[in-house]
Design a protein around this nucleic acid. Structure first.
Length: 245
DNA sequence: AGCATTTGACCTTA
DNA sequence: TAAGGTCAAATGCT
């Protein structure tokens, strides 16, 4: 089954990204024990090896993108995020305005459509779709289309520590998510500079960043909790039949 | 008053 | 023709 290999590769890709992110965070955390840093490096290396193995069963080494948009060669960047709280703003550091919501055939949850708040004022063409994963109510699949060309995105891109910034100073007006029991958490934004036709069609899974009102990663959840989210994603990779990708 | 969200209708695509 | 994506009027919130 090619889809299984593709899903596995995709999940591993996301795991690697998360491992590197955690590694970077641990490196910047003076209080983190050396063993934790070594573990992070080992985790990243292990996932990388697993990705190579998974890639052998998949010509591209990455999951291909399905759907009309992908077939048309449009920009598409998919991110899976995990929510660990029942309340919290959907915050990726950028301003989104919801313009639609649709029930998707076969999906238990509706899909919400967002576009950049500055679409009309600055001509920013970025849009995103947010849909709760069928397999796990705490996971959200976020698909970005187009590139942010607004001033806000440019300012965020210039910041050397984007993750930290977005967690320390969330925008005053945050677009609320879909009307589900659980609100999507914060998550890293895709590159603001990605340009439509130049950006390859990729399916990337990035980490679940626990959002807590009092702060960023670790406010409510330690490494153990973060890893729980990781392995929640990992377990999904071995259940492709419940994946909504 | 201005802005965001909701939601039914319309458009596009396979 | 069905399903997904977008529009735009109505409504709510600050």
């Amino acid at each position: 089954m090619e889809d299984t290999a593709a899903t596995l590769a995709t999940e591993l890709d996301g795991l690697l990204a998360m491992a590197r992110e955690l590694e970077a965070r641990v490196d910047g955390d003076q209080g983190a024990p050396g063993a934790a840093r070594e573990l992070c490096a080992e985790l990243a290396a292990s996932v990388d090896r697993a990705m190579r193995l998974a890639g052998e069963g998949n010509a591209t080494g990455r999951a291909s993108v399905s759907g009309r948009k992908a077939a048309a060669g449009k920009v598409r960047r998919q991110v899976r995020v995990a929510s660990v709280t029942d309340a919290g703003p959907l915050n990726d550091g950028l301003s989104w305005r919801k313009y639609g919501q649709k029930d998707i055939l076969g999906a238990p949850y509706p899909r919400a459509y967002f576009r950049c708040t500055h679409r009309h004022t600055q001509g920013c063409q970025a849009t995103k779709q947010v849909q709760r994963a069928a397999a796990d109510p705490l996971l959200f699949d976020v698909i970005y289309h187009g590139a942010h060309t607004c001033a806000q995105a440019a300012a965020q891109q210039q910041s050397p520590a984007g993750f930290e910034q977005e967690q320390e100073s969330p925008p005053a007006a945050v677009p609320e998510g879909i009307q589900w029991p659980v609100t999507p958490p914060s998550f890293p934004s895709p590159p603001a500079g990605t340009v439509g036709d130049c950006y390859p069609s990729v399916c990337e899974l990035a980490g679940g960043y626990g959002y807590a009102a009092g702060g960023g990663l670790g406010a409510d959840m330690g490494f153990g909790g973060q890893l729980d989210e990781w392995f929640l994603n990992l377990s999904d990779a071995f259940q492709p039949e419940v994946q909504n990708l």
